[in-house]
């Protein structure tokens, strides 16, 4: 690297960076693809779907908040293992995780998404959008499923998923960053390694551009999540205060 915000990496450096990020991703991705393929036939029966649909709204929100909180902890570990992340100042580590952890979770969700059946792995089995009906936010759920469907159509490899997740997490345009240039440098290196891997995998030239669009779509999804949480909190302030995991509140409801 020449040390500025536009790093020029050698092929070997690109490969090395891609390998490290892919290793970090596989160590912290919660589910391996092989495990998921074995579980793909386990779909919720109609009576199980109805059980979720009949849950009180606050109980279903709590369940989803718990699942998201579990996933956040794995994203934090992923971040810690990205070369250079722990060298950033603590303020910036927190800013990036606060803004990007849910975005990475939505990217990771595409690995546990069955595009043929339009189902996602949730609470032990594959769930269709109607499982989430009692949350009372059909538009958010359908946007999340549409996003997963469209990400799946790109058929990313694990290495591409890993680099795209790191690229999203290292977004240098988040508000409140103190050392923006350092983050920018890391993000550009990651983007460059992603581009290198896409070329190596002989992917269509447009894939990187499509991934940039997906990064904007992720921001919109997270914005919608915040809106829905704020609306839910207005109606059920005590449920958020007493039932939601402290880490979820720290990240999304502070």
């Amino acid at each position: 690297s020449n040390g500025d915000a536009s790093p020029t990496l050698t092929l070997a450096e690109h490969d090395h960076l891609a390998q490290i990020i892919c290793k970090s991703h596989l160590e912290t991705c919660q589910y391996l693809r092989e495990e998921l393929q074995e579980m793909s036939w386990q779909r919720f029966l109609q009576e199980e779907v109805e059980k979720y649909q009949n849950k009180p709204q606050e109980a279903m929100w709590q369940l989803c908040a718990v699942k998201i909180t579990d996933a956040v902890q794995y994203v934090v570990e992923f971040a810690k293992r990205i070369d250079g992340f722990m060298d950033l100042c603590q303020n910036d580590q927190i800013v990036l995780l606060k803004a990007g952890s849910l975005e990475v979770i939505f990217v990771r969700m595409c690995r546990v998404f069955d595009s043929q059946n339009n189902t996602v792995y949730f609470d032990g089995k594959f769930a269709s959008p109607d499982v989430f009906k009692s949350l009372g936010c059909d538009d958010l759920i359908s946007s999340v499923f549409d996003f997963a469907q469209s990400m799946c159509s790109l058929q990313l490899t694990e290495e591409e998923f890993a680099l795209f997740s790191a690229f999203v997490l290292l977004s240098a345009d988040r508000s409140w960053l103190r050392e923006k240039l350092q983050v920018e440098k890391l993000q550009r290196k990651t983007e460059s390694a992603l581009q290198h891997v896409l070329q190596k995998n002989r992917r269509d030239d447009g894939v990187l551009e499509k991934l940039r669009c997906k990064a904007s779509a992720l921001r919109a999804l997270c914005g919608l999540h915040s809106e829905k949480l704020a609306a839910f909190r207005t109606v059920y302030p005590d449920a958020v205060r007493t039932l939601f995991p402290p880490l979820y509140k720290e990240l999304f409801a502070a």
Binding site: Q73, E77, I94, P246, A254
Partner: peptide, 20 residues
């Protein structure tokens, strides 16, 4: 730091849920 106590702890911890 106080506002993001848990996140701060997770970043400092050498053992994590992933390792356990």
């Amino acid at each position: 730091k106080e506002k993001h106590k848990i996140l701060h702890q997770l970043l400092q911890n050498s053992t994590s849920p992933v390792d356990l």
